[in-house]
Design a protein around this nucleic acid. Structure first.
Length: 303
RNA sequence: GGCGGGAUGGCAGAGCGGUCAAUUGCACCAGGCUGUAAACUUGGCGCCCUUUGGGCUACGCAGGUUCGAAUCCUGCUCCCGCCA
């Protein structure tokens, strides 16, 4: 059996988890395991706000790469890639079919396109030092060291300029050197859920209301009790920052809800951008159209 | 009823005689992205014309002053505070 993988992509609240469940339940003679490709569902204790698959869903369909990091630990594409590749191997080894499910375009494409990522973990000391330098100097340094990266990275995007320098200092090779892809050693197909914008926004809004009604505030309160600071990347996730602002009395609950909805709209548009640029490599289906998805999967598996 | 403050583009909110189609933030639209990615970042955002350019309509309503008004004056409508 060749190594095959099915990716399920789409914006937040489009129903990716539900679709994975349906595919798993309605494709006879095949056994699936899900691999999470969502940059926030990797964190423990962040369940409601990230719309993590429920325990019941996870019992029916095994989900990997969920709850693999603490919210105050650094996490990244590279870490995810390593774990994802490992997990895929073990799934294939068991003779099952992986469903890579998630809305983080960078993760999905890094895997499917085989991005070669520099293994340079964040170096906080160095970053702090560089952040204190004038941006013009950082740009000048980058131009000297790596003219190609200099011309690709937007000058005002200091964060990426610093990362490029960090990678160079750590590896001795320019950042642009890493902009390569190694074709992956597996076959894949991608199924995307597409919704028109108004409908999508409505689903998002309903889901935010449901989260708020189902213990999201308590979830954030507990994270804060665990000592999760507001400026952690995990706590910058949509909803978490807004609810924190409400819990400390900066804004009303209504305001927090409204901002969470708007933030999620923005997220959904941004996610769409990742998948739109690869439009021709994705089989688009309507939300809830599991029949179409199942036949795509069956076709792919026999090909 | 008296006194004061205010009405600006989808919203908030600057501007207070010319350089204002109008700062800025949000929202919205379109992009970038190779170890923070739900991050970070770029452009657009009254209408029309092919333009670094031009035209038109705009700052509650109606008039007025002025070469020229979102900005000054008068009246009207509505809002909001304080005193009755």
């Amino acid at each position: 059996m060749p190594r095959k993988l099915i990716a399920i992509v789409g914006p937040t609240a489009s129903g990716k988890t539900g679709l994975a469940m349906d595919i798993s339940a309605r494709t006879p003679g095949r056994t699936f395991e899900a691999v999470n490709a969502d940059s926030r569902q990797v964190y423990r204790f962040m369940d409601i706000g990230t719309a993590k698959p429920t325990a019941e869903e996870q019992a029916r369909l095994p989900h990997h790469l969920i709850d693999i990091a603490d919210p105050d630990q650094p996490f990244s594409v590279g870490a995810w890639l390593d774990l994802a590749r490992e997990t895929l191997e073990s799934i294939w080894h068991r003779g099952q079919i992986p469903l890579v499910v998630g809305g983080t375009g960078q993760y999905v494409w890094a895997l499917l396109e085989g991005w070669r990522v520099p293994r340079v973990p964040p170096q906080l000391e160095l970053r702090k030092e560089l952040e204190n330098k004038p941006p013009e100097q950082l740009l000048a340094d980058l131009k000297r060291i790596d003219p190609e990266a200099h011309s690709t990275i937007e000058p005002r995007n200091v964060r990426r300029v610093i990362r490029a320098l960090e990678v160079y200092y750590a590896t001795g090779k320019p950042f642009s050197h890493w902009r390569l892809k190694d074709p992956p050693l597996f076959d894949w197909t991608a199924i995307g859920i597409r919704l028109e914008r108004q409908g999508l926004y409505q689903r998002i809004d309903e889901r935010v209301d449901a989260m708020m009604a189902n213990g999201f505030l308590e979830e954030v309160r507990l994270l804060r009790e665990r000592g999760c600071a507001r400026d952690l990347p995990s706590m910058s996730s949509i909803g978490y920052g807004e609810v924190t602002a409400h819990l400390v009395g900066e804004i009303t609950l209504e305001e927090a809800k409204a901002r969470t909805k708007l933030g999620s709209h923005r997220l959904a548009r941004h996610q769409n951008a990742w998948f739109k640029s690869a439009d021709d490599r994705i089989h688009w289906i309507e939300p809830g159209d599991s029949r179409q998805a199942v036949s795509l999967v069956e076709e792919f598996l026999v090909s």
